[in-house]
Design a protein around this nucleic acid. Structure first.
Lengths: 219, 219
DNA sequence: GTCAATTGTTAGAATACACTAACAATGTAG
DNA sequence: CTACATTGTTAGTGTATTCTAACAATTGAC
Protein backbone atom coordinates (compact mmCIF):
# COMPACT_ATOMS: atom_id res chain seq x y z
CA UNK A 1 0.00 0.00 0.00
CA UNK A 2 1.30 3.38 -1.00
CA UNK A 3 1.86 5.83 1.85
CA UNK A 4 0.09 9.18 1.96
CA UNK A 5 3.30 10.76 0.78
CA UNK A 6 3.67 8.42 -2.16
CA UNK A 7 0.04 8.92 -3.11
CA UNK A 8 0.59 12.66 -3.09
CA UNK A 9 3.63 12.40 -5.31
CA UNK A 10 1.79 10.21 -7.80
CA UNK A 11 -1.23 12.48 -7.78
CA UNK A 12 0.95 15.51 -8.48
CA UNK A 13 2.80 13.69 -11.25
CA UNK A 14 -0.54 12.76 -12.77
CA UNK A 15 -1.85 16.31 -12.58
CA UNK A 16 1.29 18.01 -13.90
CA UNK A 17 1.99 15.66 -16.79
CA UNK A 18 2.13 17.36 -20.18
CA UNK A 19 0.86 15.72 -23.37
CA UNK A 20 3.92 13.49 -23.37
CA UNK A 21 3.20 12.54 -19.76
CA UNK A 22 6.44 14.07 -18.55
CA UNK A 23 7.11 16.18 -15.47
CA UNK A 24 10.28 18.03 -14.47
CA UNK A 25 11.71 17.66 -10.99
CA UNK A 26 11.40 21.40 -10.34
CA UNK A 27 7.73 21.41 -11.28
CA UNK A 28 7.02 18.66 -8.80
CA UNK A 29 9.15 20.34 -6.21
CA UNK A 30 7.15 23.57 -6.57
CA UNK A 31 3.79 21.84 -6.67
CA UNK A 32 4.42 19.77 -3.56
CA UNK A 33 6.35 22.49 -1.75
CA UNK A 34 9.21 20.10 -1.16
CA UNK A 35 12.87 20.64 -1.98
CA UNK A 36 14.33 19.37 -5.23
CA UNK A 37 16.67 16.92 -3.54
CA UNK A 38 13.70 15.42 -1.75
CA UNK A 39 11.89 14.96 -5.03
CA UNK A 40 15.02 13.55 -6.56
CA UNK A 41 15.40 10.84 -3.96
CA UNK A 42 11.71 10.08 -3.90
CA UNK A 43 11.84 9.71 -7.68
CA UNK A 44 14.46 7.00 -7.29
CA UNK A 45 12.34 5.23 -4.70
CA UNK A 46 9.22 5.43 -6.85
CA UNK A 47 11.16 4.02 -9.74
CA UNK A 48 12.24 1.09 -7.57
CA UNK A 49 8.60 0.38 -6.89
CA UNK A 50 7.73 0.59 -10.55
CA UNK A 51 5.59 3.71 -10.31
CA UNK A 52 7.63 5.76 -12.74
CA UNK A 53 10.54 5.86 -15.11
CA UNK A 54 13.50 7.89 -13.99
CA UNK A 55 16.71 8.63 -15.82
CA UNK A 56 19.28 11.16 -14.70
CA UNK A 57 18.57 14.63 -16.00
CA UNK A 58 15.43 13.45 -17.79
CA UNK A 59 11.89 14.36 -16.85
CA UNK A 60 9.85 11.87 -14.84
CA UNK A 61 7.18 9.76 -16.45
CA UNK A 62 4.57 7.66 -14.67
CA UNK A 63 4.35 4.00 -15.66
CA UNK A 64 0.90 2.57 -16.24
CA UNK A 65 1.04 1.17 -12.71
CA UNK A 66 1.81 4.63 -11.37
CA UNK A 67 -0.91 6.20 -13.47
CA UNK A 68 -3.45 3.74 -12.19
CA UNK A 69 -2.65 4.35 -8.55
CA UNK A 70 -2.76 8.09 -9.15
CA UNK A 71 -6.07 7.89 -10.97
CA UNK A 72 -7.59 5.91 -8.14
CA UNK A 73 -6.51 8.54 -5.65
CA UNK A 74 -7.99 11.23 -7.88
CA UNK A 75 -11.14 9.15 -8.04
CA UNK A 76 -11.39 9.08 -4.26
CA UNK A 77 -10.73 12.80 -4.12
CA UNK A 78 -13.40 13.70 -6.61
CA UNK A 79 -16.02 11.31 -5.30
CA UNK A 80 -15.42 12.81 -1.89
CA UNK A 81 -15.89 16.32 -3.23
CA UNK A 82 -19.08 15.26 -4.91
CA UNK A 83 -20.34 13.61 -1.76
CA UNK A 84 -19.48 16.63 0.39
CA UNK A 85 -21.41 18.92 -1.91
CA UNK A 86 -24.38 16.71 -2.73
CA UNK A 87 -24.95 14.86 0.51
CA UNK A 88 -23.43 17.03 3.16
CA UNK A 89 -24.32 20.48 1.94
CA UNK A 90 -20.85 21.98 1.58
CA UNK A 91 -20.13 24.68 -0.97
CA UNK A 92 -17.92 23.82 -3.94
CA UNK A 93 -15.29 26.16 -2.55
CA UNK A 94 -15.05 24.32 0.77
CA UNK A 95 -14.57 20.77 -0.33
CA UNK A 96 -11.07 20.62 -1.72
CA UNK A 97 -9.15 20.72 1.55
CA UNK A 98 -11.34 18.12 3.19
CA UNK A 99 -11.16 15.82 0.18
CA UNK A 100 -7.39 16.25 0.19
CA UNK A 101 -7.32 14.31 3.44
CA UNK A 102 -10.19 11.91 2.95
CA UNK A 103 -8.71 10.72 -0.36
CA UNK A 104 -6.07 8.77 1.56
CA UNK A 105 -8.54 6.57 3.39
CA UNK A 106 -8.10 2.90 2.45
CA UNK A 107 -11.63 1.54 2.41
CA UNK A 108 -13.05 0.83 -1.02
CA UNK A 109 -16.53 0.25 0.43
CA UNK A 110 -16.54 3.79 1.78
CA UNK A 111 -16.00 5.33 -1.63
CA UNK A 112 -18.24 2.87 -3.43
CA UNK A 113 -21.02 3.91 -1.10
CA UNK A 114 -20.39 7.59 -1.77
CA UNK A 115 -20.42 6.84 -5.48
CA UNK A 116 -23.79 5.15 -5.12
CA UNK A 117 -25.28 7.85 -2.93
CA UNK A 118 -24.38 10.60 -5.36
CA UNK A 119 -25.59 8.59 -8.35
CA UNK A 120 -22.35 7.47 -10.05
CA UNK A 121 -21.28 10.89 -11.32
CA UNK A 122 -18.76 11.28 -14.12
CA UNK A 123 -17.52 14.72 -13.12
CA UNK A 124 -16.90 16.37 -9.77
CA UNK A 125 -18.35 19.70 -8.56
CA UNK A 126 -15.65 21.58 -10.49
CA UNK A 127 -16.35 19.78 -13.72
CA UNK A 128 -13.26 17.55 -13.54
CA UNK A 129 -13.80 13.98 -14.73
CA UNK A 130 -13.92 11.21 -12.12
CA UNK A 131 -11.75 8.21 -13.07
CA UNK A 132 -13.59 4.88 -12.97
CA UNK A 133 -12.84 2.07 -10.52
CA UNK A 134 -10.14 0.71 -12.84
CA UNK A 135 -8.35 4.02 -13.04
CA UNK A 136 -9.53 4.95 -16.52
CA UNK A 137 -10.24 8.59 -17.13
CA UNK A 138 -12.83 9.74 -19.59
CA UNK A 139 -11.39 12.69 -21.46
CA UNK A 140 -13.78 15.57 -21.91
CA UNK A 141 -13.51 17.59 -25.00
CA UNK A 142 -13.13 21.18 -23.94
CA UNK A 143 -10.96 24.24 -24.44
CA UNK A 144 -10.06 27.23 -22.34
CA UNK A 145 -12.44 30.13 -22.74
CA UNK A 146 -9.38 32.23 -23.52
CA UNK A 147 -8.84 30.21 -26.68
CA UNK A 148 -12.27 30.98 -28.12
CA UNK A 149 -13.08 33.65 -30.65
CA UNK A 150 -15.64 36.42 -30.93
CA UNK A 151 -19.04 35.17 -31.92
CA UNK A 152 -18.71 31.68 -30.46
CA UNK A 153 -21.28 30.26 -28.07
CA UNK A 154 -19.88 28.02 -25.33
CA UNK A 155 -20.96 26.39 -22.09
CA UNK A 156 -18.89 25.99 -18.94
CA UNK A 157 -17.93 22.35 -18.36
CA UNK A 158 -15.05 22.62 -15.92
CA UNK A 159 -12.24 24.59 -14.35
CA UNK A 160 -8.51 24.19 -14.61
CA UNK A 161 -6.59 24.77 -11.39
CA UNK A 162 -9.65 25.64 -9.40
CA UNK A 163 -8.71 27.47 -6.24
CA UNK A 164 -10.80 28.73 -3.40
CA UNK A 165 -10.46 32.29 -4.63
CA UNK A 166 -11.52 31.41 -8.17
CA UNK A 167 -14.52 29.55 -6.84
CA UNK A 168 -15.65 32.42 -4.64
CA UNK A 169 -15.17 34.76 -7.57
CA UNK A 170 -17.45 32.64 -9.73
CA UNK A 171 -19.95 32.22 -6.93
CA UNK A 172 -20.12 35.93 -6.31
CA UNK A 173 -20.84 36.50 -9.99
CA UNK A 174 -23.51 33.82 -10.08
CA UNK A 175 -21.59 31.61 -12.46
CA UNK A 176 -21.93 27.83 -12.29
CA UNK A 177 -21.14 24.76 -14.38
CA UNK A 178 -23.43 24.42 -17.37
CA UNK A 179 -23.95 28.15 -17.81
CA UNK A 180 -23.65 29.47 -21.35
CA UNK A 181 -21.61 32.34 -22.67
CA UNK A 182 -21.55 34.18 -25.97
CA UNK A 183 -18.28 35.88 -26.77
CA UNK A 184 -18.80 39.54 -27.63
CA UNK A 185 -15.34 41.09 -27.47
CA UNK A 186 -11.78 39.86 -27.12
CA UNK A 187 -9.49 42.68 -26.06
CA UNK A 188 -6.21 42.27 -27.95
CA UNK A 189 -4.26 44.37 -25.44
CA UNK A 190 -4.68 42.22 -22.32
CA UNK A 191 -6.69 39.25 -23.54
CA UNK A 192 -9.69 40.16 -21.42
CA UNK A 193 -13.05 39.08 -22.83
CA UNK A 194 -16.51 40.52 -22.73
CA UNK A 195 -19.21 37.86 -22.88
CA UNK A 196 -22.92 37.58 -22.44
CA UNK A 197 -23.79 35.29 -19.56
CA UNK A 198 -26.83 33.02 -19.83
CA UNK A 199 -28.04 35.04 -22.79
CA UNK A 200 -28.36 38.08 -20.59
CA UNK A 201 -25.99 40.49 -18.84
CA UNK A 202 -22.66 41.26 -20.45
CA UNK A 203 -19.59 40.78 -18.26
CA UNK A 204 -15.89 41.32 -18.75
CA UNK A 205 -13.36 38.79 -17.48
CA UNK A 206 -9.59 39.13 -17.29
CA UNK A 207 -7.34 36.76 -19.20
CA UNK A 208 -6.43 35.12 -15.89
CA UNK A 209 -10.04 34.14 -15.37
CA UNK A 210 -10.63 33.09 -18.99
CA UNK A 211 -7.66 30.74 -18.88
CA UNK A 212 -9.23 28.85 -16.02
CA UNK A 213 -12.67 28.36 -17.49
CA UNK A 214 -12.98 25.17 -19.54
CA UNK A 215 -15.80 25.33 -22.04
CA UNK A 216 -17.38 23.24 -24.75
CA UNK A 217 -18.31 24.93 -28.00
CA UNK A 218 -21.98 24.80 -28.75
CA UNK A 219 -23.17 23.60 -32.14
CA UNK B 1 -0.92 19.15 15.36
CA UNK B 2 -0.54 15.64 16.63
CA UNK B 3 0.49 13.05 14.02
CA UNK B 4 -1.66 10.02 13.29
CA UNK B 5 0.73 7.97 15.38
CA UNK B 6 0.52 10.30 18.34
CA UNK B 7 -3.26 10.41 18.07
CA UNK B 8 -3.34 6.64 18.15
CA UNK B 9 -1.15 6.46 21.22
CA UNK B 10 -3.31 8.99 23.04
CA UNK B 11 -6.50 7.23 22.01
CA UNK B 12 -5.18 3.91 23.30
CA UNK B 13 -4.03 5.49 26.55
CA UNK B 14 -7.48 6.98 26.94
CA UNK B 15 -9.21 3.68 26.26
CA UNK B 16 -6.96 1.57 28.48
CA UNK B 17 -6.86 3.85 31.49
CA UNK B 18 -8.09 2.25 34.71
CA UNK B 19 -10.02 4.19 37.36
CA UNK B 20 -6.81 5.89 38.40
CA UNK B 21 -6.17 6.83 34.78
CA UNK B 22 -3.00 4.75 34.62
CA UNK B 23 -1.74 2.49 31.86
CA UNK B 24 1.22 0.14 31.87
CA UNK B 25 3.72 0.14 29.02
CA UNK B 26 3.05 -3.52 28.24
CA UNK B 27 -0.67 -2.93 27.96
CA UNK B 28 -0.11 -0.16 25.48
CA UNK B 29 2.44 -2.25 23.65
CA UNK B 30 -0.07 -5.08 23.25
CA UNK B 31 -2.95 -2.82 22.33
CA UNK B 32 -1.04 -0.97 19.64
CA UNK B 33 0.89 -4.02 18.45
CA UNK B 34 4.13 -2.12 18.86
CA UNK B 35 7.21 -3.23 20.79
CA UNK B 36 7.72 -2.13 24.37
CA UNK B 37 10.87 -0.15 23.59
CA UNK B 38 8.89 1.77 20.97
CA UNK B 39 6.23 2.60 23.51
CA UNK B 40 8.90 3.55 25.98
CA UNK B 41 10.52 6.08 23.70
CA UNK B 42 7.21 7.42 22.49
CA UNK B 43 6.20 7.88 26.12
CA UNK B 44 9.22 10.11 26.67
CA UNK B 45 8.34 12.13 23.59
CA UNK B 46 4.70 12.50 24.61
CA UNK B 47 5.81 13.66 28.01
CA UNK B 48 7.99 16.32 26.36
CA UNK B 49 4.92 17.58 24.56
CA UNK B 50 2.90 17.62 27.77
CA UNK B 51 0.47 14.88 26.77
CA UNK B 52 1.28 12.60 29.67
CA UNK B 53 3.23 12.10 32.86
CA UNK B 54 6.02 9.60 32.68
CA UNK B 55 8.34 8.42 35.42
CA UNK B 56 10.69 5.47 35.10
CA UNK B 57 9.03 2.20 36.01
CA UNK B 58 5.74 3.91 36.77
CA UNK B 59 2.57 3.54 34.72
CA UNK B 60 1.71 6.28 32.22
CA UNK B 61 -0.94 8.82 32.95
CA UNK B 62 -2.50 11.26 30.48
CA UNK B 63 -2.42 14.94 31.43
CA UNK B 64 -5.61 16.90 30.94
CA UNK B 65 -4.14 18.16 27.69
CA UNK B 66 -3.55 14.59 26.56
CA UNK B 67 -7.00 13.54 27.65
CA UNK B 68 -8.60 16.32 25.70
CA UNK B 69 -6.78 15.49 22.48
CA UNK B 70 -7.66 11.82 22.92
CA UNK B 71 -11.31 12.59 23.61
CA UNK B 72 -11.53 14.70 20.48
CA UNK B 73 -10.14 11.86 18.40
CA UNK B 74 -12.65 9.50 20.00
CA UNK B 75 -15.32 12.06 19.21
CA UNK B 76 -14.36 12.06 15.54
CA UNK B 77 -14.26 8.27 15.52
CA UNK B 78 -17.69 7.87 17.03
CA UNK B 79 -19.36 10.60 15.02
CA UNK B 80 -17.98 8.94 11.93
CA UNK B 81 -19.38 5.58 12.96
CA UNK B 82 -22.72 7.16 13.60
CA UNK B 83 -22.66 8.90 10.25
CA UNK B 84 -21.66 5.74 8.40
CA UNK B 85 -24.54 3.84 9.92
CA UNK B 86 -27.24 6.51 9.83
CA UNK B 87 -26.47 8.34 6.62
CA UNK B 88 -24.54 5.88 4.53
CA UNK B 89 -26.29 2.65 5.33
CA UNK B 90 -23.40 0.64 6.73
CA UNK B 91 -23.93 -2.07 9.33
CA UNK B 92 -22.63 -1.51 12.86
CA UNK B 93 -20.10 -4.26 12.30
CA UNK B 94 -18.58 -2.56 9.25
CA UNK B 95 -17.91 0.91 10.53
CA UNK B 96 -15.05 0.53 12.96
CA UNK B 97 -12.24 0.06 10.45
CA UNK B 98 -13.38 2.93 8.27
CA UNK B 99 -13.78 5.26 11.25
CA UNK B 100 -10.32 4.24 12.41
CA UNK B 101 -8.95 6.06 9.38
CA UNK B 102 -11.41 8.89 9.01
CA UNK B 103 -10.86 9.93 12.64
CA UNK B 104 -7.49 11.40 11.70
CA UNK B 105 -8.88 13.91 9.25
CA UNK B 106 -8.19 17.49 10.37
CA UNK B 107 -11.31 19.37 9.33
CA UNK B 108 -13.60 20.38 12.17
CA UNK B 109 -16.31 21.46 9.71
CA UNK B 110 -16.47 17.93 8.32
CA UNK B 111 -17.26 16.40 11.69
CA UNK B 112 -19.54 19.23 12.77
CA UNK B 113 -21.58 18.60 9.66
CA UNK B 114 -21.77 14.87 10.40
CA UNK B 115 -22.85 15.70 13.92
CA UNK B 116 -25.62 17.90 12.57
CA UNK B 117 -26.77 15.41 9.96
CA UNK B 118 -27.12 12.61 12.48
CA UNK B 119 -28.87 14.86 14.99
CA UNK B 120 -26.20 15.50 17.63
CA UNK B 121 -26.12 12.00 19.10
CA UNK B 122 -24.69 11.30 22.54
CA UNK B 123 -23.75 7.69 21.89
CA UNK B 124 -22.38 5.85 18.86
CA UNK B 125 -23.88 2.77 17.19
CA UNK B 126 -22.23 0.55 19.80
CA UNK B 127 -23.63 2.52 22.70
CA UNK B 128 -20.34 4.23 23.55
CA UNK B 129 -20.67 7.86 24.59
CA UNK B 130 -19.52 10.55 22.15
CA UNK B 131 -17.32 13.21 23.80
CA UNK B 132 -18.49 16.78 23.20
CA UNK B 133 -16.59 19.37 21.19
CA UNK B 134 -14.57 20.35 24.28
CA UNK B 135 -13.48 16.80 24.94
CA UNK B 136 -15.82 16.17 27.86
CA UNK B 137 -17.26 12.71 28.12
CA UNK B 138 -20.62 12.03 29.63
CA UNK B 139 -20.30 8.93 31.78
CA UNK B 140 -23.12 6.47 31.39
CA UNK B 141 -24.11 4.48 34.37
CA UNK B 142 -23.94 0.83 33.37
CA UNK B 143 -22.53 -2.51 34.46
CA UNK B 144 -21.46 -5.66 32.68
CA UNK B 145 -24.26 -8.16 32.25
CA UNK B 146 -21.96 -10.68 33.90
CA UNK B 147 -22.12 -8.66 37.12
CA UNK B 148 -25.88 -8.88 37.40
CA UNK B 149 -27.84 -11.33 39.53
CA UNK B 150 -30.74 -13.68 38.91
CA UNK B 151 -34.07 -11.92 38.83
CA UNK B 152 -32.77 -8.53 37.63
CA UNK B 153 -34.24 -6.81 34.58
CA UNK B 154 -31.75 -4.88 32.45
CA UNK B 155 -31.50 -3.19 29.08
CA UNK B 156 -28.53 -3.20 26.73
CA UNK B 157 -26.89 0.24 26.54
CA UNK B 158 -23.49 -0.52 25.12
CA UNK B 159 -20.64 -2.92 24.44
CA UNK B 160 -17.17 -3.07 25.88
CA UNK B 161 -14.43 -4.01 23.41
CA UNK B 162 -16.84 -4.44 20.55
CA UNK B 163 -15.25 -6.48 17.81
CA UNK B 164 -16.52 -7.49 14.42
CA UNK B 165 -17.11 -11.03 15.63
CA UNK B 166 -19.08 -9.92 18.68
CA UNK B 167 -21.20 -7.66 16.52
CA UNK B 168 -22.01 -10.39 14.02
CA UNK B 169 -22.81 -12.70 16.91
CA UNK B 170 -25.30 -10.21 18.30
CA UNK B 171 -26.71 -9.48 14.87
CA UNK B 172 -27.25 -13.15 14.14
CA UNK B 173 -29.14 -13.51 17.40
CA UNK B 174 -31.26 -10.47 16.70
CA UNK B 175 -29.88 -8.50 19.61
CA UNK B 176 -29.60 -4.73 19.43
CA UNK B 177 -29.05 -1.74 21.70
CA UNK B 178 -32.07 -1.01 23.87
CA UNK B 179 -33.22 -4.60 24.04
CA UNK B 180 -34.24 -5.85 27.48
CA UNK B 181 -33.18 -8.97 29.32
CA UNK B 182 -34.44 -10.72 32.43
CA UNK B 183 -31.86 -12.87 34.15
CA UNK B 184 -33.16 -16.38 34.73
CA UNK B 185 -30.10 -18.45 35.63
CA UNK B 186 -26.46 -17.77 36.43
CA UNK B 187 -24.42 -20.91 36.07
CA UNK B 188 -21.84 -20.94 38.90
CA UNK B 189 -19.57 -23.36 37.07
CA UNK B 190 -18.66 -21.29 34.02
CA UNK B 191 -20.47 -18.02 34.61
CA UNK B 192 -22.78 -18.50 31.64
CA UNK B 193 -26.19 -16.91 31.97
CA UNK B 194 -29.64 -17.80 30.76
CA UNK B 195 -31.81 -14.78 30.11
CA UNK B 196 -35.11 -13.97 28.54
CA UNK B 197 -34.68 -11.64 25.60
CA UNK B 198 -37.27 -8.93 24.95
CA UNK B 199 -39.64 -10.67 27.35
CA UNK B 200 -39.71 -13.70 25.11
CA UNK B 201 -37.30 -16.47 24.12
CA UNK B 202 -34.81 -17.70 26.68
CA UNK B 203 -31.18 -17.74 25.58
CA UNK B 204 -27.93 -18.80 27.17
CA UNK B 205 -24.79 -16.71 26.79
CA UNK B 206 -21.25 -17.61 27.77
CA UNK B 207 -19.37 -15.55 30.32
CA UNK B 208 -17.24 -14.16 27.50
CA UNK B 209 -20.32 -12.65 25.91
CA UNK B 210 -21.83 -11.45 29.19
CA UNK B 211 -18.68 -9.56 30.07
CA UNK B 212 -18.96 -7.51 26.90
CA UNK B 213 -22.58 -6.49 27.23
CA UNK B 214 -23.04 -3.24 29.14
CA UNK B 215 -26.48 -2.92 30.63
CA UNK B 216 -28.50 -0.55 32.78
CA UNK B 217 -30.61 -2.02 35.55
CA UNK B 218 -34.29 -1.27 35.11
CA UNK B 219 -36.26 0.17 38.03
C1' DG C 1 12.94 -13.26 51.83
C1' DT C 2 14.50 -15.26 47.66
C1' DC C 3 13.74 -16.63 42.89
C1' DA C 4 11.51 -16.43 38.78
C1' DA C 5 8.21 -14.20 35.93
C1' DT C 6 6.77 -9.95 34.40
C1' DT C 7 7.57 -5.45 33.18
C1' DG C 8 10.37 -1.74 31.88
C1' DT C 9 14.81 0.26 30.07
C1' DT C 10 19.02 1.04 27.29
C1' DA C 11 21.66 0.81 23.29
C1' DG C 12 22.07 0.44 18.57
C1' DA C 13 20.20 0.21 14.11
C1' DA C 14 16.72 0.59 10.12
C1' DT C 15 13.23 2.96 7.21
C1' DA C 16 10.68 6.89 5.40
C1' DC C 17 10.82 11.38 4.59
C1' DA C 18 12.50 15.86 4.82
C1' DC C 19 16.31 19.58 4.69
C1' DT C 20 20.76 22.60 3.32
C1' DA C 21 25.04 23.36 0.99
C1' DA C 22 27.69 22.58 -2.73
C1' DC C 23 28.34 21.08 -7.31
C1' DA C 24 27.27 19.41 -12.15
C1' DA C 25 24.62 19.25 -16.33
C1' DT C 26 21.56 21.44 -19.52
C1' DG C 27 19.70 24.95 -22.19
C1' DT C 28 19.30 29.55 -23.92
C1' DA C 29 20.56 34.54 -25.19
C1' DG C 30 23.45 36.95 -27.31
C1' DC D 1 30.06 29.35 -28.91
C1' DT D 2 30.39 31.07 -24.56
C1' DA D 3 28.16 32.64 -20.22
C1' DC D 4 24.59 32.63 -17.12
C1' DA D 5 20.32 30.92 -15.54
C1' DT D 6 17.83 27.01 -14.74
C1' DT D 7 17.55 22.45 -13.51
C1' DG D 8 19.11 18.36 -11.48
C1' DT D 9 22.41 15.72 -8.44
C1' DT D 10 25.30 14.33 -4.45
C1' DA D 11 26.52 14.25 0.14
C1' DG D 12 25.58 14.81 4.65
C1' DT D 13 21.97 15.53 8.31
C1' DG D 14 17.77 15.55 11.11
C1' DT D 15 13.30 13.91 12.90
C1' DA D 16 9.67 10.45 13.53
C1' DT D 17 8.85 6.00 14.16
C1' DT D 18 9.91 1.43 14.36
C1' DC D 19 12.74 -2.80 15.56
C1' DT D 20 15.92 -6.51 18.21
C1' DA D 21 19.05 -7.90 21.74
C1' DA D 22 20.50 -7.46 26.13
C1' DC D 23 19.87 -5.98 30.70
C1' DA D 24 17.53 -4.04 34.99
C1' DA D 25 13.76 -3.26 38.18
C1' DT D 26 9.54 -4.76 40.20
C1' DT D 27 6.42 -8.03 41.78
C1' DG D 28 4.26 -12.24 43.07
C1' DA D 29 4.75 -17.16 44.66
C1' DC D 30 6.22 -19.93 47.95
Amino acid sequence: MASHTVENYLKALFALANKAGEVGISDLSDHLAVSKPSVNSMAKALQQDGFLKYEKYKPLKLTSKGKKVAALVVRKHRLTEMFLVEQMGFGWDEVHDIAEQVEHVKAPAFFDRMDELVGFPTVDPHGSPIPDAHGNVLEIDCVKLSECAVGEKVSLVGLSQSSKSLLSFLDSHGIALGHTFGILVVEPFDGSMTVEHQGAEARTFSLKVCERLLVRKEA
